[in-house]
Design a protein around this nucleic acid. Structure first.
Lengths: 208, 208, 208, 208
DNA sequence: GATGAATGAGTGTTCATTCAT
DNA sequence: AATGAATGAACACTCATTCAT
């Protein structure tokens, strides 16, 4: 199957290879410093071929962006589809991020460093992705407030910012410092820490 | 009085004007898209003059970076110098950020979007600024744990990430959405929200 | 046959074309006045292509420099390798210069006007090329002194300076005045003049 | 007298200071690399003042050029005005160059490196200076041929090129290698070498 | 006379993109 | 599909020159 260069698989494989190379190079040098030549070289192909599989540098970036948001929204679909406690729901989000960082650190890195902060090219369309994600998280928070599981004196929007901010802050720091998650154990501890503090606070009284 | 172009004041003013123009343009277009011409035009001068006051585009960026860190470290000095409860200390940090965002949104924006995530050109020297800031915050957290004010079952480093992450997440969202703080009242509510959730948790039990 | 732009030959030809264009433009305007656009235009290509074949303007200049020294040293190798009288050896040097000026006046011009006098950027490495050439010529002179063919009361180093100076002076003047060698006859007369005067002096008694 | 800043002397002194600074900087960096700022700094004044005393960078260069040619022609006047043997006349020229190099190495350096080879901006007017100098030297050579002191089988023009070439070659080498004349003794030996070889040849038979 | 802030033409270089092979 | 030669828009930066003070 893989021998046939005309198969759909072959095309997808090549595309995926370029995709990964792009993530890797963009992670290392940033979007603007990442040259098409670098990406092609990293993928082991000629740079002309990049244009065969992706129309332009911007398209390549859009593909990465899409990959990120598709995955995130798929997780959110699952998160909201079934009845679950607020603890479980937020745990699902936290674990999704940590999981993804273990499996595809380059993708997460690119999101953190390039997508999440690129005010520069932040078209309304791009902003929409963020807004929708925040809205859905807010809905989860609001639902838990309605059920009486979350405190009501802080706006659900604020809870969203705090929760996602704490999570992203954690990821960012790992990304910035290039620290890798060392094993399942550490990941659990981190997830536990974030969720515990978010639910019960950092105050000493919270742990008793 | 200000007519004398040779006076020290005049020089500082011009430099400050270019500085602000740079923040503004970089905020709008991102560092790489920000052309020196744009900055000059925004400051109402010829672009050659930018090079008279700042050696290069990188120098200009370094100046912005320095401005940010100088301010932040000055605040941290104050924060650590006097005896205070953990609540007061963290409130000081939160308020510093929110304050600065009110007074100099462009500077904060540039930090959030360009400095805090520029993994690309993250030299060890630049990383050092972050590390030191995290270290100092961690020390505050650890101190409060020793005093029994903060829970001990979460590493002080993690508490740091969660706290600063939540704070930065909040700021980021404002920055990304170009939302301005609407009045002292809203700022207080936000500060209260972040600190409350961090200390006592988002759980409904925390508010009782 | 030459249609294949990927062949080695094609590449070498293009490079050579740019090389010659560079010599020509540099000859006409001097190194600093020679713009890459000029060179490209002269070679009938876009200026971006110059960077495809040569890394930078400096590289282009280095290539010219290398071409010059390679040729000169190859001649010197031949000059020193076989047993020959001092007359023949120096004749070989003189003829090499005059020959080259006929075949590649631009190259000689660039050497005379740009390389041989660029004290400005005279790195130790560049100086080395001159020193080695002088050293080898000096060795030839010293050898002839040992054999009793050249007078011993003038240091071989001085003889070198005088001989090469006279030769270069001649070439320079042609270069400066843009005079072309008019035929084999004139070239012979010039070579004869330089060698005769060097060996037997300009004094009237020398010709008897 | 020197106290009066309005005196002619003061102006001339300032001009001379700038002139010397220009020679020095141009010698060190070449004409195109020599910035007005460098020259001003070297002269201990502000760069604006350079424009007060010299109209432009080109004017400054012209002044240097004029200084060179004025001196040279003054010497030639003397050389030709009185009856003298060809030996004495050529000795006068040789000594003039060596003398000047001792007294004003920067000026000589600038001539060798910048004026004598600047084909780039070689206007007919500039070329005229060279031509006239060569013509006058040629006339001296021709005169000696008529008197039977110099061999007639080499064109006087060629003798000129050979003689001045040898002389300039010597100077150039000193200039390039930054070798300074070490004392009166060495200068005499060099002058003797150049003249001896020019008159009697380098051949061993010439010295017997 | 003296200063240096201000200007902007000029140019080397990069790199996304196209396209002939 | 695959290659890489070819193109040229875009931009940082330099520096001679002017001129208000």
């Amino acid at each position: 199957m893989l021998q046939d260069p005309h198969s759909m698989d072959h095309k997808k494989e090549k595309q995926a290879a370029i995709f990964e190379a792009a993530c890797s190079v963009i992670r290392e040098k940033g979007f603007h410093q990442a040259r098409i030549v670098d990406i092609a070289r990293h993928a082991g192909i000629s740079y002309g071929l990049v244009y065969h599989y992706f129309g332009s540098k911007a398209d390549l970036f859009d593909a990465i962006s899409k990959e990120w948001w598709d995955g995130l929204y798929a997780m959110m679909d699952q998160c909201e589809s079934q009845p679950a406690s607020i603890d479980d729901r937020l745990a699902m989000i936290v674990n999704y991020f940590l999981d993804l960082y273990e499996r595809r650190p380059n993708l997460v890195h690119v999101f953190i460093a390039e997508i999440s902060r690129s005010t520069a090219n932040l078209t309304p369309a791009r902003l929409e992705f963020f807004t929708r994600f925040f809205d859905r998280t807010e809905r989860i928070m609001a639902g838990a407030q309605d059920l009486g599981t979350l405190r009501k004196d802080v706006k659900p929007r604020y809870l969203t910012y705090i929760f996602l901010g704490a999570l992203e802050g954690f990821i960012s720091t790992m990304v910035m410092g290039e620290q890798l998650l060392k094993g399942r154990e550490q990941r659990k501890r981190i997830a536990r820490g974030i969720l515990d503090v978010f639910f019960y606070g950092a105050s000493a009284s919270g742990q008793d």
